[in-house]
Design a protein around this nucleic acid. Structure first.
Length: 822
RNA sequence: GCCCGGAUGGCGGAAUCGGCAGACGCGGAGGCCUCAAAAGCCUUUACUCGAAAGGGUGUGUGGGUUCAAGUCCCACUCCGGGCACCA
């Protein structure tokens, strides 16, 4: 397309200027009000793709807008540079992941600059920087010393594709790996964990204060999964001095217990199993062990096969409510690592128990009166208790209280809160991550690497193993070391940390990377934290966003980050994703649309404008045949702006008249609208408003009568300021042409609407007859109810519509409408 | 199965304090400019009946509340996302 200016030259000029002059560098002692704007730590996968463009366009808009509001805006950037893709690529190419990663970092940096995104590059951070690793390892040791990092054997998720264990959060509900999509298998391994469960309660309650999308908060709440209940004893029938301990959230249904069920991993299982039942029980236990979670996670619907998922142990416990013996079953639907690994089963009021009981021919005893017409198995709603001794007649809540008291007195009952959340598994059997700074000594056991020996760096002389096994595990000079305590030969830990540990504190480093010999100065960090606006994809709703919340709380409690707000991200925005033919646009699917081609035509400005205009930022964007044309349209808008600002085809007249005043009103109303839209993330509407204003001004200026010079200049300058955060290059260029002696556009203040020009002097009132619009009247907004009524009736078209019919009623709602009912 | 979103012209989407449905843009149609084209500019564009004036119908479906419903209530359909044996 032929454009009235050279887009590449203009954009290159301003990009160099912002970068070379450090326009968006900000000092920690800046006295202005502070604003911390942050896009999620990007993984350096090479040149920016459209998803990045969208994300960083939003981020850059926030930075530039807040800057124009005269705030000290912290806009940092860095790279989440450890991770599997680099490692896999290095394996393929036979190189080192570092070389590969640094190449990709350069590409991503320059494509962010090409987009016109502005940062304080002095604060750049990347995870594999030795200085960053030093602090990652320091923090690991601090967590370890405080007991928040520990090593334990547990059944863990192993991804055969990634050749490493994964955290629970990285495994989908269907048992597949979040990264590779492989089916995850369960292994018993000794691994490193962070004790995130210590913070379960705060992670839950802290959500309330956050200005985050409700669905993200809901997802975190569900993931944490708090449940209140009672833990109590079911005495063993053959030895009442001992008991099976169970957890329930429904103590009120105790009279309906018809069996107890324990997990295949339960420590008492062997003892409880009688000779007669041993064969079937062992078979079930073996199967539970070998099956993947995918196979084990089948829904608990009654049907063929369900009976095989549980077996009678041959033993009984006594129900403390009824003093009757009930059989103990083992079943894989009861989890070994939740609650006590054993439950009381109440088929009448729990769907899983109902399905299980039905499959095994166990009785169903209702303890809550079902509503009339209730059909089906378990009834989980509220109701009056029946068949329940002292609980009869009570509702669920009252019965829960009474039953809990009973259990406290008679069955060692204690109220207990359980969480679904498990500790964060942080060790990975991979090379390209931050090494865990622990040494194993035969005499001293686990010993932390002394702080003055940090960072433990990854060796350069490695051959990436085609099998995917980490070369650290077999790297002799890395593995062999001496014990810091006794000096004897010892081994290093060869696992590395989950890369989510790196992204759990990078924002603190951004706040202060300047203080020597410290990860950050807490006083400096406290000035910026929490992040005022965090921007990223919803795919991190649980993973990164929960880990970072935990990590910051832990660092504060360990005295590393005293004085900081306990929540890292005050306000979160999650943008929609890009789809192409309904599928997610992604590198792995190979369906990405590169941004570069658009820089040649509409420029970064045009592409940015498209992303802002395409629809609400939260919504997904479907990239289709029409998209190209919309992008072209965004380019055309910028051309029209350029022409108008050069007075193409404009006619002038001298003194401002009523028409000019109307233009000024439009200008000021647009200021108000765009400002509001920016605050509410309604960027698509902000763009529409600016387009609309340009149309209004152009039309007026190009009319035969023309425009008064000062009025047009004000309109153009306001347009440039409103567009400055959206299309920064061209706006800055035009501004400079028009104001060669003034400071640059981005140093200008955001415009403020003149209230006297925003208020409307006349307004259109609609007149309806029986709810149908029959006339539109220009009236004074202050018009009284009766005047509005009269004006409506006086109108000719209204009279024609009434056609003499008798008026039953008039609804007068000035200044919006009058509705006449006949 | 449960929990959240969402459904508006040919298309992306506006309009949430119940008060002009379709802002803005894309696409289409017609015109101006031009030897012609591109670019640009102007007009028009929900559907439908009508030559026109004018009328009727319209926000996934079916009901309801109201003078008035895209917006509120009830029931449902479809699409997207999250969770899915956590006792």
């Amino acid at each position: 397309m032929g454009r009235p200016f050279d887009v590449k030259t203009v954009e290159a000029k301003w990009q160099s200027r912002w970068f070379d002059e450090g326009t968006y560098e900000v000092d920690n002692d800046d006295p202005r009000e502070r604003y911390f704007a942050l896009c999620m730590y990007p993984y350096p996968s090479g040149a920016a793709h459209q998803g990045h463009v969208r994300n960083y366009t939003f981020g850059d808009l926030v930075v530039r807008y807040q800057t124009m509001l005269d705030k000290a805006v912290l806009s940092p950037i860095g790279f989440d540079s450890f991770g599997l893709p680099a490692e896999n690529a290095a394996i393929k190419a036979g190189s080192h992941p570092r070389l590969f990663t640094e190449e990709r970092m350069k590409e991503l940096s320059s494509s962010l600059r090409r987009l016109g995104a502005v940062y304080d590059w002095r604060r750049e951070v990347f995870s594999h920087d030795p200085e960053y690793m030093r602090w990652s390892q320091t923090f690991f040791l601090a967590l370890w010393n405080a007991g928040l990092a520990y090593r334990a054997e547990a059944p863990v998720n192993w991804c055969p594709g990634c050749m490493t264990v994964l955290a629970n959060e990285q495994v989908h509900a269907d048992g597949t790996c979040d990264r590779s999509g492989d089916v995850v298998i369960r292994k018993n391994l000794e691994q490193w964990f962070f004790k995130i469960t210590d913070y379960a309660d705060e992670l839950l309650t802290g959500l309330d204060s956050l200005d985050w999308p409700e669905r993200v908060k809901t997802m975190q709440r569900n993931w944490i999964g708090r449940s209140e209940g009672v833990e109590f004893d079911l005495p063993l029938a053959y030895d009442p001095s001992r008991a099976l301990r169970v957890f329930t959230t429904r103590p009120d249904t105790g009279f309906g217990v018809t069996c107890a069920v324990i997990a295949p991993e339960h420590p008492l299982l062997v003892e409880l199993t009688t000779d007669d039942e041993r064969e079937r029980v062992l078979e079930l236990v073996e199967r539970a062990k070998s099956e993947s979670d995918l196979e084990r996670t089948v829904s608990t619907e009654a049907g063929p096969g369900l009976d095989k998922r549980g077996a009678f142990t041959g033993s009984f416990v006594v129900n403390p409510f009824t003093n009757e013996p009930v059989p103990i079953y083992v079943a894989d639907y009861v989890l070994g690592n939740y609650g006590t690994g054993a439950i009381m089963a109440v088929p009448a009021e729990d769907e899983r128990d109902f399905a299980f009981a039905t499959a095994h021919g166990l009785p169903v005893v209702r303890t809550i009166q079902t509503p009339d017409g209730f059909e089906g198995g378990a009834y989980t709603g509220d109701g009056v208790h029946i068949n329940s001794g002292f609980l009869n007649g009570l509702g669920v809540d009252d019965a829960k209280r009474a039953a809990s008291e009973f259990l406290e007195k008679n069955a060692h009952g204690v109220s207990k809160v359980n969480y679904r959340l498990r500790d964060w598994l942080v060790s990975r059997q991979r090379f390209w991550g931050c090494p865990i700074p622990i040494i194993y000594c035969d005499d001293d056991g686990m010993v932390g690497v002394p702080l003055d020996q940090l960072p433990i760096l990854l060796p350069d002389d490695v051959t990436m193993d085609k099998t995917g096994q980490s070369p650290l595990a077999t790297h002799d000079s890395f593995r062999h070391t001496t014990c810091p305590k006794c000096g004897k030969p010892a081994y290093r830990e060869t696992d590395t940390m989950d890369t989510f540990t790196d992204s759990s504190w990078y924002f603190l480093r951004f706040a202060d990377p300047f203080t020597p010999d410290r990860a950050f100065d807490p006083e400096q960090a406290a000035k910026w934290m929490p992040v005022d606006q965090y921007i990223g994809g919803v795919e991190h709703a649980i993973l990164h966003l929960m880990y970072a919340r935990f990590y910051l709380k832990a660092l504060i409690d360990l005295g590393i980050a005293p004085g900081l707000a306990r929540e890292p991200f005050a306000r979160l925005f999650t943008q929609g994703m890009l789809r192409i033919d309904g599928a997610k646009m992604s590198k792995s699917k190979g369906n990405q649309i590169a941004p570069e081609q658009y820089y040649e035509t509409v420029g970064a400005d045009g592409l940015r404008l498209f992303h802002l205009f395409a629809g609400p930022p939260v919504d997904d964007v479907d990239w289709n045949d029409q998209t190209e044309e919309i992008i072209e349209g965004c380019g055309r808008f910028l051309d029209r702006l350029y022409r108008l600002s050069h007075y193409d085809d404009v006619n002038f007249h001298d003194a401002p008249d009523e028409g000019d005043l109307d233009v000024r009103r439009s200008v000021h109303r647009s200021i108000a609208t765009v400002t509001e839209c920016f605050e509410k993330w309604m960027y698509n509407i902000a763009v529409a408003e600016v387009m609309s204003l340009l149309n209004t001004v152009s039309k007026h200026a190009r009319s035969e009568h023309g425009v008064e010079r000062g009025t047009l200049d004000e309109a153009i300058d306001v347009l440039l300021k409103l567009l400055a955060p959206m299309t920064p290059h061209l706006s800055a260029e035009i501004w400079e042409e028009r104001h060669p002696d003034d400071s640059a556009l981005h140093a200008q203040r955001w415009p403020v609407a003149d209230p006297s020009l925003v208020i409307t002097t006349t307004v259109t009132m609609i007149v309806q007859v029986n709810g149908k619009v029959r006339a539109r009247l220009e009236i004074d907004p202050q018009i009284s109810e009766s005047d509005a009524h009269e004006a409506a009736l006086a109108d000719e078209t209204v009279q024609r519509a009434l056609a003499g019919a008798s008026i039953k009623r008039v609804v007068s709602r000035p200044p919006r409408l009058v509705n006449i009912i006949v």
